[in-house]
Amino acid sequence: MPGRLLRLLSLLQSRREWSGAALAERLGVTDRTVRRDVERLRALDYPVEGITGTAGGYRLVSGRNLPPLLLDDDEAIAVALGLATAAGGSVPGIEESSMRALVKLEQVLPARLRPKMASFGGVTAAVPHRGAPHVDPGVLATLASCARDQEVLSFDYRNRAGEVSARRVEPHSLVTVRGHWYLLAYDPDRADWRTFRVDRIERPLPTHRRFTARELPTPDAVAYLARSFASASYRYTARMTVRLSPEDIQARLFAPIPGEVEPLGPDASAVRLTADSAELVVQYIAALAALGAGYTLEAPAEITDRVRRLGLRLAS
């Protein structure tokens, strides 16, 4: 009995809604047994809500109290690592609460998982992203829950120029890059995918309208974000021709390029660098030049002047 209740709880936590028939099939029991087990979970303060309809069903909803969560081994390790590194992230105000939660988790961590957790703790560290914008943990939670539940999301968005527009999107996923959080979503009003900086999102609200998930035009959210960065045009743009293949460039640089790299034959590449910061563009120009291959540079005067001054400082 306890084992079946735990399996039922795990299923209810794995997705938003289940039909009674699907739960009975997964558990290998009758619909009547599922109904009895649901009542037992409710008696243990798990807020399991019944769904009306032709088949009927159940879903686990938010209640007054936080009931215990059921995590498998990989999920437990992932949560512990996330809590351990939260103090070095870009979400302010959660360092102390993260440590308290980590202590509670470690107290109940099964013995078989402790060596794995200890091995991570000895060789990992979090480097804070200085200068990265702070984001509201509540905003992140709202975006993540709407993406998980496939619920249309509305919010006000402030673009780079400071202009604010009302948006209504189908959220797909959250991605963090160099301390910045981004929401990847489909915008029906623009009939296209869009990325939004989370620190520029204001007043996000679930609309309680469901949508059917769309297929990304790239293998995953990270690949789409990289393509979006490459095709964007920011305040400063420079172009370099480097006598290396794109694979050699990406393999030898310390971080992904804020732009696009295209092959110009087997041993040459066209590199487009773009960013709102002139300093960042110059840093990547210097990094590419330091690879030791021949190159040419096309850039506005503000960029080339900075490159010359940097060269003089290095030479001196």
Score class of each variant (00 low, 15 high):
Tyr182His: 09
Ala287Trp: 01
Phe211Ala: 05
Tyr182Arg: 03
Gln150Cys: 12
Arg160Met: 11
Arg178Cys: 06
Val175Ala: 10
Arg197Trp: 02
Met240Trp: 01
Thr176Asn: 12
Ser277Arg: 01
Thr195Pro: 04
Val152Gln: 15
Arg214Trp: 06
Ala230Gln: 09
Ser245Cys: 00
Thr241Gln: 14
Arg178Met: 07
Arg158Tyr: 00
Arg227Met: 08
Gly179Trp: 09
Thr195Gln: 07
Pro256Asn: 10
Ser165Gly: 12
Phe211Glu: 00
Thr212Ser: 14
Val261Asn: 10
Ala290His: 14
Arg235Tyr: 04
Arg209Tyr: 12
Asp149Glu: 01
Arg209Ser: 13
Ala268Tyr: 05
Phe229Lys: 13
Ala147Lys: 03
Leu264Val: 08
Gln150Arg: 13
Asp276Lys: 05
Asp189His: 13
Arg239Trp: 07
Ala287Leu: 06
Ala213Tyr: 05
Ala213Ser: 15
Val281Ser: 01
Phe155His: 08
Glu170Pro: 09
Tyr182Asp: 03
Pro206Ser: 03
Pro217Cys: 06
Pro219Gln: 10
Ala275Leu: 04
Val271Gly: 07
Glu163Pro: 03
Leu253Thr: 07
Gly292Pro: 14
Arg168Ser: 11
Ala161Phe: 00
Ile201Glu: 02
Leu216Cys: 04
Ser269Arg: 03
Leu280Met: 11
Leu216Trp: 04
Arg252Asn: 10
Glu260Gln: 05
Asp248His: 15
Arg190Leu: 14
Val169Trp: 08
Gly259Lys: 08
Ala213His: 06
Phe229Trp: 12
Arg200Asn: 03
Ser173Val: 06
Tyr182Lys: 02
Asn159Glu: 00
Gly292Ser: 15
Leu280Trp: 01
Ser165Arg: 14
Ser173Leu: 01
Pro256Gln: 10
Thr207His: 07
Leu205Phe: 13
Glu202Ile: 14
Phe211Pro: 01
Gln250Ile: 15
Leu291Met: 13
Glu260His: 10
Leu280Pro: 01
Val261Trp: 09
Ser154Val: 15
Ala221Lys: 07
Val282Ala: 02
Thr241Pro: 09
Thr218Phe: 04
Ser173Cys: 05
Ser154Arg: 14
Glu151Ser: 08
Pro188Val: 03
Tyr157Thr: 04
Glu247Asn: 15
Val222Glu: 13
Ala293Arg: 08
Met240Cys: 05
Pro188Phe: 04
Glu260Ser: 12
Pro204Met: 07
Glu202His: 15
Val222Pro: 08
Arg200Thr: 00
Val282Trp: 00
Arg200Phe: 01
Arg210Phe: 15
Ile201Thr: 03
Arg243Phe: 15
Arg235Asn: 05
Gly292Asp: 15
Pro219Phe: 09
Thr195Met: 02
Leu264Met: 08
Thr241Met: 06
Ala286Pro: 01
Tyr182Met: 06
Val222Cys: 10
Pro246Tyr: 09
Ser233Tyr: 00
Leu291Cys: 08
Phe229Asn: 11
Ala147Phe: 02
Ser245Asn: 04
Ser228Trp: 08
Ala161Val: 11
Ser165Cys: 12
Met240Asp: 00
Arg160Glu: 09
Ala289Cys: 11
Arg168Trp: 07
Leu153Lys: 08
Glu163Gln: 10
Asp220Glu: 13
